[in-house]
């Protein structure tokens, strides 16, 4: 197993290099650049200033040189500095990462908590009303654009009913203590987490139901039932354990998806996470920060794939890696 992980990790290196070249070139190909001025007077840059900034940002170097400078920095831990704020990219990302991790972590947890029981119940009661309703809802969930869902939640719970705050992670007017502080944080997280968890919950419910149905029709389940085990034991101990194997794979691969979904959620609810940083940087063509975030996203996808494969092997003793 150990050698397998090492070998897969080594194989990921050329993949990551390839990805880095592609994202670097794609960013260069986007129209406009970091020196564009803004609308409404104030931003008229003089020629001198533009030239100075170009030199300072290294935008005058040939592309391969720019790429090697950047890639070399990534490896040695110098991810460059933001064109916009002048802060080191790693620092800027590290500032925002915890918020995004909190959001994605909660959303992932909520997805599992909702999808597992519903999926299992729906499978054990196939063609029941519960099954139809849960299937219908999960189709709706998969099909709902998350930005629209977020705006609807905002409209209903913040603007119409006034129950939940519309932005940020804490009340900026007063400092709360004790239970009030816990509620303050929770009330700010409910809608963002709901939006982020929506699609993954719906997808996962479908997967759990499908996987359970596959297993429930297997011979060994019938045998277990035939030997007089309680339905509960059959479903939880015998069926679900086996159904969990494909579900785990899918769930782990959802993590990078959730992470990227945070881009939309954080923008709607004004949450200062990595997703927001990405949008801000894209608006300003802040290449170093954009590249940093994209590389992290790429790493995450590669690592989630590896993790899924490893977990697969751990859960299913029939699979061995050499």
């Amino acid at each position: 197993m150990g050698t397998y992980v090492i070998r897969r990790s080594l194989q990921a290196i050329p993949l990551l290099i390839g990805i880095s070249i592609v994202i670097f070139l794609l960013l260069q190909m986007t129209p406009g650049g970091p020196l564009a001025s803004s609308e409404g007077g104030g931003g008229r840059a003089t020629a001198e200033r533009t030239e100075r900034l170009r030199a300072q940002y290294g935008l005058d170097d040939p592309l391969p040189v720019q790429y090697l400078n950047w890639a070399g920095g990534i490896v040695t831990g110098d991810w460059g500095t933001s064109f916009n704020t002048g802060r080191p990219v790693l620092e800027a990302i590290a500032d925002r990462l915890p918020t995004t991790l909190l959001l994605t972590g909660l959303a992932f947890g909520v997805s599992l908590l909702i999808a597992l029981p519903i999926g299992i119940l729906a499978a054990t009661r196939q063609y029941s009303v519960f099954d139809y309703v849960s299937s219908g809802l999960s189709f709706v969930g998969v099909a709902t654009p998350s930005f629209w869902f977020g705006l609807m939640l905002l409209f209903l719970f913040s603007f119409e009913l006034g129950w939940l705050p519309s932005s940020g992670l804490e009340d900026l007017r007063e400092q709360h203590v004790g239970l009030a502080a816990v509620w303050d944080r929770m009330s700010h997280l409910i809608m963002p987490v709901a939006v982020l968890a929506l699609i993954s919950t719906a997808q996962l419910t479908r997967y759990v139901r499908g996987a359970m149905l596959d297993v429930l029709h297997q011979d060994y389940v019938r045998t277990a039932r035939g030997s007089g085990l309680s339905e509960r034991t059959v479903v939880v101990r015998h069926a679900f354990r086996n159904a969990a194997i494909p579900v785990v794979t899918v769930a782990v691969l959802m993590i990078p998806e959730l992470f990227l979904g945070a881009v939309i959620t954080e923008s709607i609810f004004a949450i200062p996470g990595m997703g927001r940083l990405f949008i801000e940087s894209a608006d300003l063509r802040d290449y170093p920060v954009l590249l940093g975030i994209l590389i992290i996203a790429a790493l995450l996808v590669v690592m989630a794939n590896l993790l899924a494969d490893v977990l697969y092997g751990l859960l299913d003793p029939r699979i061995t890696y050499e």
Binding site: P31, G32, G33, L35, A36, S37, S38, E39, G43, A45, T50, R54, D283, R285
Partner: peptide, 14 residues
């Protein structure tokens, strides 16, 4: 067009 493309500098192809 995006503002970057509209107001970009000469070098950026604004």
């Amino acid at each position: 067009v995006p503002s970057n493309l509209m107001f970009g500098t000469f070098e950026e192809g604004g």
